[in-house]
Design a protein around this nucleic acid. Sequence first.
DNA 1: TGTTTTTATGCACGCGCGTGCATAACTCAA
DNA 2: TTGAGTTATGCACGCGCGTGCATAAAAACA
Lengths: 327, 327
Amino acid sequence: MKSRVTAQHVADRAGVSRSAVSRCFGDGQVSDDTRKRIEAAAEELGYRPNAIARSLTGRSTGLVALLVAEMDNPHVDIVLKKLLLAIAEADKRALVIPETPRQDVTESTMHALDYQVDAIVVVGGTVSDRVVGQLRALDTPVFQFGRQLDGLGGVACDSHLGGLMGGQFLIRSGRTRIAYVSKESRTDSNLRRRAGLAAALEAAGLPLLEERSEDNSFEGGYNAATRLFAQLERPDALFCFNDMFALGALQAASAFRLRVPEDVAILGFDDIPMASWSAFSLSTLRPNLDAQIARLMAMIAEVCDGAPPRRTVDLVVPELVIRRTAC
Amino acid sequence: MKSRVTAQHVADRAGVSRSAVSRCFGDGQVSDDTRKRIEAAAEELGYRPNAIARSLTGRSTGLVALLVAEMDNPHVDIVLKKLLLAIAEADKRALVIPETPRQDVTESTMHALDYQVDAIVVVGGTVSDRVVGQLRALDTPVFQFGRQLDGLGGVACDSHLGGLMGGQFLIRSGRTRIAYVSKESRTDSNLRRRAGLAAALEAAGLPLLEERSEDNSFEGGYNAATRLFAQLERPDALFCFNDMFALGALQAASAFRLRVPEDVAILGFDDIPMASWSAFSLSTLRPNLDAQIARLMAMIAEVCDGAPPRRTVDLVVPELVIRRTAC
DNA sequence: TGTTTTTATGCACGCGCGTGCATAACTCAA
DNA sequence: TTGAGTTATGCACGCGCGTGCATAAAAACA
């Protein structure tokens, strides 16, 4: 294993001092002549500055940590992918740390900090208030993506508004027995979407039916919807926590020979790619992911420029996408 | 922004030299007494060794780079997730570098090398022979996941065998007009699956029908299958390059009012989670991902222990999963 | 108690690089 | 030719840590 080419090697080759090489690859002053010689030598030797060593003196490592949980959720998938691309575009590197059975958020954060990352982004998963407190106290900027915990900056889709919009839409289309289908967990976004829907229903004087499931998304939606459809007075609209639940519910409706949307309307949340497939044609609420990510990257760029990290959450308005399952 | 706690701070606090602290967190010899004092001081100050600085002298950064392309393919998704978990379990960190329009594999590799990663894993995407040559020449171990390019170590599903197994299965179940549905690209795995199928058909004296599409997976399968079904003598079995193609083909069959599997059998490859949903119940070939990942991690562990990187590809035998669309 | 062996600790150097400071080289005007 | 002003270069130090080496302390033995 041949050892790596260092700035010293280039300096020797070009007959200059190592500092000259350093300045040449940084933003220092170098004469045209030496610059040429250095670049030629670097090219020959295949030199590339060592990002690790470089970050030891300068304060920036160019690393952004992504703490990601709930990786079985396709929406988190998409967010992760888009974040990866955005980070690469911003000429930074992503250190992805998954939540494992053995490692919770706190532990993951510690690992991220070991690498002196420029910023930490928490994606998906459940973050307790206690952890938020710890994160706040860090000198490394921490942002949340997709939730709205107090005291921690970030971006999120406006879940409450989304719930409201979905509810109002279902009411306008004449539904009167509207059920909210979700999982047991007290996720922030779950509670907010439900609250938005509840507000719309209350304003219209309609009851809020509800069914929860502890199963995973697709099966959860399937099972919860099955229980709802088996009731004597079954709902005429299902507002699902996310698209996977909605797809499961759609499957359940088909098993009950219910016509969608005539007998029952089904509305999802997230607009995952599958939602637009003609096999499903799921009506849903689309969080404007690109806008969210753009804002997040702007926040990250800010702190990299030395600004203090934002402490507020930027809410992005979702968009109602009307397809076949609710119209 | 308060500066980070260093080993020197801990040393001062504990009244020992910095080297003692270093040894305490490494594997050096420290007496019980000083160890206690150091650990207490570290605890109080919240000290954690700086992984960046640590890697500067020791040769290992604990980083593994994942160069990932084709991120719209759900199978790549799953691989990525499982790899992330495996890397975390192995107490290493994943540096994920996506292939962007602006950055090809070579460029991504350079970025990875800038961070002195312990190993590079190439996942998905098309890697040209030229690039393989460059990767070979690196002193950083490079492994490929899911393909079988010569001269580069790694793991992969035995695509040829998979094609053969699928073909033999369809033949045994009485199919005579078997079509291979895939994308235009000359991906390694694509060619091998096709060759395996071709071998099975040739041995049985059957023709190999074929349809390719340049569209993305789901639409590609839908469009290709549509063209096949529109022919006078339509095939009675479709062997699709992957499950997404197969789902598209399934959708096309439904549009043509064809019964599956009576009129046409559909076989996929990958066994993505959706394949097992009762809405689809797709028969498919399941690459043994966990086995592949286990072997890959073993290879990585080897090189981290100083062994020279393997140059061969470990092939894992896929498993035929028979569900409703082909039996 | 003195001597040898073992163990614990500190010192100093280096990993690869950025950067302040002093010096050298160069430019331009007088 | 000389002086002031400007620019380019090298030297040396430090970032936080691991580690070889020398030394001090402790332990073991005679």
